[in-house]
Nucleic acid binder design. Structure first.
Lengths: 194, 194
DNA sequence: CAATTAAACTAACAATTGTTAGTTTACCTT
DNA sequence: AAGGTAAACTAACAATTGTTAGTTTAATTG
């Protein structure tokens, strides 16, 4: 399936948004990157807002869909976390530029802001629930679930910064290494006698 | 020591920059938040740029100074990492708003951009060196140091988002809990027999 | 070939941007 | 009371912003 002109504009916009942020990128910047004049962009898109909305909402819904699938699978909590890690590595690897907007420019969503926040809160709640279940099942250490959630999610949300520099690493291997570090830590010494 | 008017402007600016990003905050926004007119700001500051520069560079230098102290201390690599974690918790706790600019708006630094990037690269290099020494000393698992660096630093750099929601937690306790999770992981099962 | 259409263009708009110049106000020090 | 000063003000500027209207170009379709 070939890329439409609109999709091309959105893809290029995401790249510019990643570099300077949504607010600092002008429609003339975007037009120049496309090799056309600013007014010509409006043959394809409704507004600057519309571009941001498309980038962010599609990604947020992808995460939501992934989370639903993971919740439905009947695997251990730790394995659910591993699949969440793989979900982030996968989506981020496919759209690093868009992930920058999702992380940094969601507050400029305007009409779609409430919907986005709803998706995000829901995602975090499900994430936290998996951690809580893991603690109850004695798979996960009994510490503050919020700190664990924050710690893992911060790393996963920052993947967009880091993945482009590590082109040689394939997604599967990165997922595995990341799971090992996030779940087992980096300390070599014995942790628990069980 | 009481706050000068200039410091007050910078503090309020940092709060606004955190909410909307540097580019989306106008001098009229800042003036309104200060209860004065935009032109009056220029009795105290040189330019909008100048505000951003002050916020970011002072924080970056604080991190650099902290890293120097840690490097000089003769403690194990794991303990150095613990002190780095405490350094981030400490600085972020004192200036959460400024940390948002440091993380998200450094690319708008213009003249001071190169200096900032130098400090940041230096900081990361020292961080990576500590991890490498920990691996050599068999304190830290023998995995990709870059992934460990990325994982820990991503969490520490995101503290500014999360600390304000956790007001009740004191810095020392947060440092300890964070160290436990970042260094030992969340997996409850025995990790290594050695 | 004629008609349609996709996608570019020029020109312009009203609003907003950071910033400057010059002035006024209110307080402190002599 | 006089003078100085910190910090506000009004008014305006040149540049840039997102966007619209109307037109031209080039390719595709009937």
């Amino acid at each position: 399936m070939v890329e439409t002109r609109k999709e091309e504009i959105i893809r290029v916009a995401a790249r510019l948004f990643k570099e300077k942020g949504y607010s600092a990128v002008t429609m003339r910047d975007l037009a120049k990157a496309m090799g056309i004049k600013a007014a010509s962009l409006y043959n394809h898109i409704d507004s600057k807002q519309d571009i941001l909305k498309t980038i962010i909402i599609s990604l947020a819904e992808e995460f939501t869909a992934g989370m639903v699938t993971i919740l439905q699978s009947e695997i251990s909590s730790l394995n659910k976390l591993k699949r969440i890690i793989a979900l982030h590595v996968g989506i981020t690897g496919e759209n690093t530029d868009g992930m920058a907007s999702l992380n940094n420019d969601w507050m400029h969503l305007e009409e779609k802001l409430d919907y986005y926040l709803m998706l995000r809160i829901n995602y975090e709640d499900n994430f936290r629930k998996i951690i809580r279940e893991g603690i109850a099942a004695e798979e996960i250490v009994d510490k503050d679930p919020d700190i664990m959630l924050f710690s893992i999610l911060s790393t996963l949300r920052s993947l967009y910064i880091w993945i482009p520099d590590k082109k040689n690493l394939d997604p599967l291997q990165l997922s595995h290494e990341l799971s090992a570090i996030l779940l087992n830590g980096i300390n070599k010494k014995v942790k628990k006698i069980s």
